[in-house]
Amino acid sequence: MTAALAFWLFAVVLLTAALMVITAKNPVHSVLWLITCFFNAAGLFILLGAEFLAMLLVIVYVGAVAVLFLFVVMMLDIDFRALRRGALNNLPLGLFVAGIILTETLLVATGWQAGQGVIVHEALAGPPAGMSNTQWIGSQLYTRYVFVFSMSGLLLLAAMVGAIVLTHRRRIGVKKQSIAAQTARTPAGTLGVGKAPLGQGVEL
């Protein structure tokens, strides 16, 4: 009973929030609704008994990705209403692309027989005795799926290198603190005691 109630609560809030993401007038409100979405998806994961995935979803998406996203959106000065004016014209195209993606997803989910390489459909029987499901995920991910795991890691690395190459530029004329130079300073290099004769001053 409680689980069913919780499911409906999370599901309804999730879908409402998802709708609000695309309809909200203010982009910051959109991002806040998106965060609500993530959070409710994590709730659904917990109901499925996948608490490790739920926590990772909250930590990675809510705690890091969405914060940076919000950060950027808050500082943008774009009139989103002007951007959205042509939305209705592009609606058929958008629906068409969405339809293609949906069909493809359905094809993969229903028609594709798991064969060589990654095993998708084989249901695993649950963690062996004396092992929590978190340990189980670890032991599977780093043994059986280690190739897929490393490949996705490499993909992310490539994306990161690409982003850095695209955005990094050497700025000139920036004042930077060099801790090493500061601590390497000695009184001999910076301090001098000189005689200042009366009425003549000193030459520096």
Partner: peptide
Amino acid sequence: DLNVGLLYVFAVSSMGVYGIIMSGW
């Protein structure tokens, strides 16, 4: 007594930033 207690702590404390960033905006 969650078996992912430490992750729970980390998740909740990483969400704490929203109160601040939302109030600021």
